[in-house]
Write a protein that binds this DNA or RNA. Structure first.
Lengths: 247, 247
DNA sequence: CGGAGGCTTGAAGCCTTTCAAATTACGTGG
DNA sequence: CCACGTAATTTGAAAGGCTTCAAGCCTCCG
């Protein structure tokens, strides 16, 4: 478990102003930092496995993750879940709800987490006065669309080994952007969640981990992962290399 | 080929006002009709296989399809294309570009088509004065996110036959919403494009078509498709039924 | 008529899933 | 602190579905 002070070592909890600066500083481009400083909002704790919002719940707020990790998922007609994304500190939750009156997916915490609640109605009021704020908001929505398109690319025509490599490299880059080690981090989600997200079974994920481990690409201890050969993993992710099956 | 007058039998070409009403009337909710009436913009013809915009091209306009069909696609690192969507009259192109300075995908016409060019800069000016306009715009962006999430669901955990059924039912619903027959329509895209979109090979698409045809679910004549048993196809799409392999 | 591109069909092979079982973690209560 | 039961993960073997490779057909158009 990660404590608040580890992530925000110099933060003064509850400081009225600058909350959003801190919320967003980690996740967005330099230029996007602080774009929400003007909006008001309160914090909310979400315990592990607890849901931040549910599908079909009326849409009121966006949520900026202060610390912790979340997954978003929906259900198909057969009642099986499909995970559509994993989110970490500094990222925004709830954008899908803009399409209608209700949330279109569920968001659940993967560990004890905290978010900033951003009432969308007050955000809309601000948009009229702050064109720059609106522009940044549109950029974030565009990024969400782009992110999902990348995921389509992944699910559409990558083999299992490439999918998993892309997954690891993506996590690595996001942790790096937040100032954490890009080569050693903890998986906050289960193997099952990873498989679900990548369109693979839990067994396939397990086999891939063993394979990467045996080839010296990875060190794995439970959910603690170390990228031993990041470059080789990137080559796998790019599809320029292949990883031989286990001896 | 479909002519302009077939789609807009009562249209007065070049009528200065109401252009956007016509652009959007087909694709959006009743409530969304005409939300762009205030914006200025000019028309642009795009011939078959011609590109409306390219990846990495600077972002200036959104495009509303007046008539015709488009596909959007990107390239992975190996240079293969992945189609991320097919768009028809009344739908909006270019939203992904909001994430940055440039378009993030390519858009190509599947047949001779026409679009309304909507300069995004002037749209942004309008947003400040028209909160309702902004709200509708956000809804459309949200719909795009939701649409892609649905596609993730499809690619993530559906078998080939279910994917193809979903594809057909989706087309059917969209044509129905535009006042066309939901059970008889022409595929504007090649088998190869369909396969690419669904994460399958062209051979798989061909085999699925033959299978559905032999089971009496479908009539197929080149690209002309008739849904003989729409309900059965919907059951396949929902995953509640399965279609036996060919005898 | 001929050529090119799009489509169909068959057979073989591979990758991933499915099914099954064993192993390892983890939380709870004794 | 240990025992136990449950959940998560690993591993193996077999089956299945989709792809790959190959060949042939159809259709459009010059």
């Amino acid at each position: 478990m990660i404590s608040y002070s580890q992530i925000y070592p110099d933060a003064q909890p509850r400081s009225a102003s600058g909350i959003y600066r801190r919320c967003f500083a980690l996740g967005l481009d330099q230029a996007d930092i602080g774009w929400l400083d003007h909006a008001a909002g309160c914090r909310r704790r979400v315990g592990r496995d607890e849901r931040l919002f549910r599908m079909d719940q009326p849409f009121r707020n966006l949520y900026a993750i202060r610390f912790g990790h979340f997954k978003t998922y929906q259900f198909n007609s057969a009642g099986e879940q499909q995970i559509t994304g994993f989110q970490m500190a500094g990222e925004l939750l709830g954008l899908d709800a803009l399409s209608g009156e209700c949330h279109q997916c569920n968001a659940a915490a993967l560990e004890d987490s905290e978010v900033c609640e951003i009432p969308f109605a007050s955000l809309e009021l601000l948009f009229a006065r702050e064109p720059e704020l609106l522009r940044r908001f549109h950029r974030i929505m565009g990024q969400e669309i782009t992110r999902e398109q990348d995921l389509l690319l992944l699910l559409g025509n990558m083999r299992a080994e490439q999918r998993f490599a892309v997954f690891l490299i993506n996590l690595s880059a996001r942790y790096a952007a937040r100032g954490y080690s890009p080569t050693a981090f903890q998986l906050r989600m289960s193997r099952e969640d990873i498989g679900n997200y990548l369109g693979l079974t839990i067994e396939s994920i397990s086999r891939l981990m063993s394979r990467f481990k045996n080839q010296g690409l990875l060190k794995v201890d439970k959910r603690e992962v170390t990228l031993v050969q990041p470059a080789a993993l990137e080559a796998l992710a790019a599809g320029t290399e292949h990883c031989k099956p286990m001896s």
